[in-house]
Design a protein around this nucleic acid. Sequence first.
DNA 1: TAGTGGTCTAGACCACATC
DNA 2: ATGTGGTCTAGACCACTAA
Lengths: 254, 254
Amino acid sequence: MTEHKVEIAMRPDGPAGAEILGFRPLYQQVKANFVRRLVDGSWAPGMALPSESQLASEIGVSQGTVRKALDELAAENLLVRRQGRGTFVAEHDEQRILFRFFKLMSDDGIARFPDSKVLDGTCGPADAAERTALNLQAQEAVIRIRRIRSLGGKPLVLETVSLPAHVFPGLENGPVPNNLYSLFATRYGITIANARERLKAVALTPDQAEHLRVAAGTPALEIDRIALSLDGSAVERRLSLCLTEEAHYQSDLR
Amino acid sequence: MTEHKVEIAMRPDGPAGAEILGFRPLYQQVKANFVRRLVDGSWAPGMALPSESQLASEIGVSQGTVRKALDELAAENLLVRRQGRGTFVAEHDEQRILFRFFKLMSDDGIARFPDSKVLDGTCGPADAAERTALNLQAQEAVIRIRRIRSLGGKPLVLETVSLPAHVFPGLENGPVPNNLYSLFATRYGITIANARERLKAVALTPDQAEHLRVAAGTPALEIDRIALSLDGSAVERRLSLCLTEEAHYQSDLR
DNA sequence: TAGTGGTCTAGACCACATC
DNA sequence: ATGTGGTCTAGACCACTAA
């Protein structure tokens, strides 16, 4: 078992390094400690964490401080807390979490997860857009997966996923599951923490239109997603072209 | 000064109404109390709240319980907490809050707020879409405002705002400010708490295209927004057609 | 200097899940 | 019956702001 310690000592009676470093709350240090365990895999998806009081005594802070750290991580969807059962590391294959990264739904309001069929998978040098999105150097290789996602047999999305080859070695060989993010987690230990999407309306090219079985020039919703892992690095770029005749992208502003 | 009281008495030693009602945490009751003050206007936008300890002793709970209620309201953007200064009711005309409901930005990443020019304002019976969106009966009247929003002189959005006439009496007379939501707050005491947007890609009709000075059939991003007030009722429907040649809709998934 | 929110602690009790 | 997270309290001290 790896040793885990909160790096900076607790403030003693008088103000210590506070005036130098500008003061960092204890619970944030504890939280950072927990994030490290998530990143390095010592807390793996689905796992039950030790209880609050165990963590508190291990680290040497009060239960309330541990609680505040855990509550924030739960609010960021990295942990799931269940009263009476314990605190668990979030998984990416639960229904409720699937739709956190899938905002497209049919107009009747019923949220279903689409099938997907891979068109092709290639590996080659990143283009300019991919280099910008993924912070890559010129000549660095990306794995590219194109697929069609359908709802009830009807083509809905033409999707191009670009992944840095050095982050996902060997992914180009072998089958591609419908839910990529749980593959990232189980096979590469990479958790997608959040994502940024940019939406535009575009006209489909003849080639794109053919894959989606509509006329060239049909308007489509273009979703340009950059997904960030736990440590904040961009690990996926996904360009989706969506037909929105009978579906829409739902965004809740709170 | 109006009297404010937490409705249900604190649980006495033994379990009281808990087994009947299924238990509602104290801090949630306190929070509901605070929301009521926001709704009825006794806490108006921009106002400073009493301090935590004042509120705590007024209601008869501990400061920590008040704090949890205030923290949640701050997380929902209804309050703003400033260390050393106090807790304030959120306003809708601060820069940072404007962009909570305006996700369109130019591709260079610079977030600017667009001008707007009113095309026309009418008042008439709600159509089917408006009735559904705003929960109106047949024959109920809505105020309709159409306007063009431009960025740097360039038309960007053709927007149709529909408002229940009985909620905003007299709004059809008089000027329409660029920022409608702060008008709602100051003149009608209505705070927009959150909104739901549905996005589609559509082709512009000749009429729409003319207003935006582009060719008919140009793809546009259609944003169908329903805005909810503090008490959860739908008070605005806004249908926007956005050109996305040099701009995009940004959505952050967390 | 006084007053505010922010952090931290310690302990009690409650609701929920499992054994 | 036991252990978990959830709620509630009370009090101490810290950091920030303004007078």
